[in-house]
């Protein structure tokens, strides 16, 4: 079976930096995997995700999505296959549009039929959202915004969901809640996810596999079977 996603000798450089941001990364993601990418700030986690959604282009090597170079995909196809959530609400949602309008934009892009009741659908993510369909997203709380972003991201499930520290701007309780919700949704719907976080216990609990980056290189790979025997402290020691 061909893997869903392959990173082959990925190198990413920035003209103003001496050290490459990513240096010869090789990694394979199978369909249904939930891969947690760990690493210190500046280790290249986010850059790796940005290669996927078209914000960055590799200098060397290639990213293959179902054996196709990701650069050869049209932006529309890529948007269809890959969806990103970040910690900042303005990367995920149109703040000056209402919840319903945000939904309409997603629906139109997917050329899909409208769902029966957006309110019912949102109920499962955050009970408060259901009553606020006509409210500007900017007026929602941070937790509501991220829950909405997640709900819209998985409305028409993408091939790959990229979660770039999507809980890190929230308070611990809300973050915990959202993380659990995210994990449940992606397992229920068999969504392949790449997730970056600084929370090692999240990584252990929710990740199927763990990829640790250090200074742009692959530092450690932890597979499904190895994970069982690890504690958060051990993971911390291995990855940072």
């Amino acid at each position: 079976m061909t893997p869903l996603l392959q990173f082959e000798h990925i190198t990413l450089k920035h003209p103003s930096l001496e050290r490459p941001i990513l240096d010869d990364i090789n990694y394979t993601v199978q369909k249904g995997d939930c891969v947690v990418v760990l690493g210190a700030n500046g280790s290249g986690k986010s850059s790796l995700l940005k290669l996927l959604d078209g914000r960055y282009r590799t200098n060397d090597g290639k990213v293959l999505l179902k054996d196709k170079n990701i650069l050869s995909l049209s932006s529309r196809t890529r948007a269809h296959c890959i969806h990103t959530l970040t910690q900042s609400a303005q990367d995920n949602l149109f703040l000056d549009l209402t919840i319903f309008e945000n939904y309409q934009l997603i629906q139109k892009r997917n050329k899909a039929d409208a769902i029966d009741s957006l309110a019912d659908y949102l109920q499962a993510f955050n009970v408060k959202l259901a009553a606020k369909l006509d409210v500007l997203v900017a007026r929602l709380s941070g937790g509501e915004q991220q829950a909405l972003a997640l709900a819209l991201a998985v409305l028409y499930p993408p091939e790959i969901l990229l979660l770039d520290e999507h809980t890190s701007a929230l308070d611990p309780k809300t973050a915990e809640h959202l993380m659990a919700l995210t994990a449940r949704i992606i397992h229920e719907r068999h969504i392949t996810a790449l997730l970056t976080t600084h929370n090692v216990s999240h990584a252990l609990t929710y990740g199927d596999r763990i990829l640790a980056l250090k200074e742009g290189c692959v530092h450690d790979c932890i597979e499904r079977n190895d994970k069982e025997n690890l504690t958060a402290e051990m993971l911390m020691a291995r990855c940072y």
Partner: peptide, 23 residues
Amino acid sequence: SRLGLCLRAFGDNPALLSRQGYN
């Protein structure tokens, strides 16, 4: 119309609109 919505979304956040696959 939908075009109006897209234009409004463009003004709000063109980068996100582009990532959502709009031209």
